[in-house]
Every structure is written in structure tokens, then in C-alpha cells.
Nucleic acid binder design. Structure first.
Lengths: 133, 133
DNA sequence: CGTTACGTTTACGTGCACGTCAACTTTGCT
DNA sequence: AGCAAAGTTGACGTGCACGTAAACGTAACG
């Protein structure tokens, strides 16, 4: 328990974001730092959430979509209705990600093909130069 | 050769985008439809490019990044300098995508775990209700 | 020959995700 | 006590990716 909570600067350094970003996420109810006086203290929970937020962003989800999904990772309990609603949301999200993965695999394959083609072309060009020299 | 080129509406229907989007992409030099009078006609090349554009977007690349990369798929020839520059860009892009894939796999795993946890919770809740009834 | 459909340019508007001040406390040295 | 560093709350600004409305062209159809 060296660092139970982080102040805003430590949090920024740890995740490579700006203070503005963290305050913005709090305003959007994605993070809930506790207050010591008026200063923010980010808990383990906030750190877990931020990690998920940044990941979600990299996968092209909006902050609002991410906010909804964060509930899934924090559904300690709650009404069945709310829980199953969140669950259904997660199912859609999962399907989305698996589709994305399939497409990503395809894209990687195609890009590699193109690069092989380009590499060949480059090899020819450098050979021509060698011959000319 | 039923449809060698598409007009803007056919193009929109085929890719589920708006005319505004296509004109915007042309302005940004992502597409190069030919003109019949003042009307745009989208070629096979434009269709291939648009497919890649939309894919790139889904993977979180900006239009400007995508523009640079499209050259790779269309480097019919060109100077060695330009070609190898494009190639290097593609290498970075590929690395990016493979990193994204790894992270996506991890995220899918975690989400599945959470969902299993949620499913269990839901099962318990519905069981309680059954007992209570 | 009018009008309807489809397309065009020009230009201003919008939502998202922050960036960037300005003005103000609060805290930690010295 | 004084002063700089770190943090806070507004509030306006910005870049991207389009949306939307106005005014115009033109080709076909009854």
C-alpha cells in the first residue's frame, strides 16, 4: 500500500493524459475521484476505469458508449432489470469486437500482401540502380 | 461490365454513406471521381478506395492518416524515395494494427470473463425469485 | 414549356473530445 | 509573513468529420 490514491499529476503521468482530460471524464461521469479538500484523489477503481476508457477509445467507442459499459465492470449488484440490460449491452459490444477482430485480421492480411508487392518493386528499383552504377 | 461507374446516389447506397461524405472525401483528396459534365462518376478505383477508407475509420485512423496509406494500395509506380517512404509508413501501420489486435484479444477475454460473472449473478437472482414465488 | 428529380457549389452549423487561458485557493517551503 | 507550485472552477477556443440549408444548373417527362 505505498500509493493507495493518486493525485491528478501522478494519474496523468501514469496514463499519459492531461489534467483537463481527467476533469472532463469526471464531468462526464466516467471517473469518480474522491476529494481531499477540493483536490481530486484517484482510487484504484478510477485507475481500473481509466484503463478501460482508454482501451475503449482505441477501439473507436465514444465516451458515452464507454460510460454505459463501465457499469458492467462495476455491477457489484443492482436490480435484475438493470443488470440484464447491462448484460445485453455487453453482448452487443462483444459481438462488435469480434466482428472488428475478424475485419482486422483481414485487413492485416491484405496490408501484408500489398507490402510484399511493394517490397518486390523496391528490390527491382534498387537492382536497376546497382546495374546502372 | 454492367456498371462501369456509379453516380453519387448509387455510390451512397452501395456503401451507406451520404453525398456530403463523398464530396468531403473528394475535397480531402481521398477520392477522385471523374466528371461527366459537372456530375461525379465513381470508378472501380474509387470504390476500392472507399472500402479502405471506411475500414480505416473503423480502426480509428484519421482521414489524413488514411489518405497517406491509400497511396500504398495505389503505388503503381513512382520514385524509389516516395515508394520507400510509403512502405515505411505501412510498416508502422501494420505494427499498429497488430498491437491493436493483441489488445483486442485481451479485451475480448476480459469482457467474456465479466459477462460470465454477470450471468452467474443473474442466474442467482432469477433463482431467488423462483423460490420466493 | 413548366416542374420534378437529381446533382452541384458555397457557406454556415453541430457534436465530440478535449486545449487553453484567466482568476482564484490551498499547500509547502524559506 | 511571503511566495512559488500545484490544483480548482468557469468559460471560451479548436480540429475533425461531417450535417444542413440556400441558391443554382440541367436533363427528362408529361
Amino acid at each position: 500500500m505505498t500509493t493507495e490514491t493518486l493525485n491528478i499529476r501522478q494519474m496523468c503521468d501514469a496514463f499519459d493524459v492531461t489534467p483537463r482530460t481527467l476533469r472532463f471524464y469526471e464531468a462526464k461521469e466516467l471517473l469518480f475521484p474522491i476529494r481531499e479538500g477540493q483536490k481530486r484523489l484517484f482510487t484504484k477503481r478510477d485507475r481500473a476505469r481509466l484503463k478501460l476508457i482508454l482501451r475503449g477509445k482505441r477501439f473507436g467507442f465514444s465516451l458515452e458508449e464507454i460510460r454505459q459499459l463501465l457499469d458492467l465492470y462495476h455491477m457489484n449488484d443492482g436490480q435484475e432489470a438493470q443488470l440484464s440490460k447491462t448484460y445485453i449491452l455487453a453482448e452487443r459490444h462483444l459481438a462488435d469486437m469480434e466482428a472488428q477482430k475478424a475485419e482486422l485480421d483481414e485487413a492485416i492480411g491484405e496490408l501484408k500482401e500489398q507490402m510484399a508487392w511493394g517490397a518486390e518493386k523496391l528490390a527491382k528499383l534498387s537492382k536497376e540502380k546497382t546495374v546502372a552504377a
